[in-house]
Amino acid sequence: MIELFGVFLLALAVITAIGVVQARNLFAGVMLMGIFSLLMAATFFLLDAADVALTEAAVGAGISTVLMLSALALSGAEEKARSRSRILALIVVTVTAATVIYATFEKPRLGDPNAPVQQHVAPWYFDMTQEAIEIPNVVTAVLSSFRGYDTLGEVIVVFTAGIGVLFLIGAAAPKGRASPSQGDLPVGLKHHQPIRVVGKLAIPFILLFAFYVQFHGEYSPGGGFQAGALFAAAIILYGMLEGEATALSIIPAPVLFAMSAGGALLFGGVGVVCMLLGGNFLQYDVLLAGSPVGAQQMGIIAIELGVGITVAGTLLSIFFAFATRDQS
C-alpha cells in the first residue's frame, strides 16, 4: 500500500524534474527544484530512510533553495539562450539510459530481503550496534563509528566548500543593503510586521528543535548534520527578517568561520586523541578506560557536535557570503 504512494511520488518527481529542465524562468526552475526535493524526501521516508529524508528536507528543500535564490539575486533569473547541441546530448543521454536499463533487468528487486546488500554487511551492523555501541539509531552508529572516517571526510567537504565560497565571493566587504549610503532603503523584511512577528516567534523554536535533533540523534532521526542545517536555517531566517548586517553583528563572520574550522578540528581532534590513547584513528573505545560502550557513545556525541558546529558555521558563512555580496 505504502509502496504505491512511493510510485506516485516518484512519478510526480519525474514530472517535476522535467519541469525544472524545461522552465525558461530560472526562478521557476528553482521553485520546482524545491518541490522536487520535497518529493524526493517524502519518497526516501517511504523507503525507510528517515535520516536521509530529514537531511534532504533540510538541505535540498531548505538551504539549497535559499542559496540558489541568493545566487539568482546576484546573477539574474532569466534563461536567454536556447539549448545547443541537442542531438548530441540526446544521443549521449539515450545511450546512457539504455545501458542502465539493460543492467536493471538483473538487479535484485526492490525490497528483496535476499539481495546481497541485505545479506552481507548489514546484519553485522545491527549486531555490533547492539553489542558495542548500544544506541537505537543504527544509522547514527554506522555514520559516526563504523564509518566515522567517511563522516570526517564529509565534514571536510563542507568545510572545503565554505573555504571555496569565501575565497571566491567572500573577499568583498559586506556592502549592499546594509551600507550607510543606502540607509534610507528598507532593510530585510522590517516593514512587514506580520512576517517579522511570526518569524521571530519561530526562531527560538527552530533553534530548540535544532538542539533536539543534535542531541537526540542517537535515538531518533537526526544528528549533527541535520541539526547544523536547522541551526543555520534559524539564523538565516533571522538574517532575512532583520537584514544581514544585523545578523552578522550578532554572530560575526569570523566567528562563523571559526565555527566551521573548529568543528572539523573537534572531529579530527577526537580521532587524534584516540590515537594518543593507543587506539586507531577514530577508535572511540579507548576514550574511557574500562567502558568501551560508554566510550563509543561519548565519541559519537563529541563528533556529532563537531559535525553540527561545522555545518552550521559553514552554511551560514556561505549564506552571508552570498547575501552580502554587492549586487552592482
Binding site: W124, Y125, S145, F146, G148, Y149, D150, F281, L282, Q283
Partner: peptide, 13 residues
C-alpha cells in the same frame, strides 16, 4: 592495512 576506528573490514573502513 589500517583499520579506521578499529573496525575490521569489510564492516569498517
Amino acid at each position: 592495512v589500517y583499520h579506521m576506528g578499529g573496525w575490521a573490514p569489510p564492516f569498517g573502513i
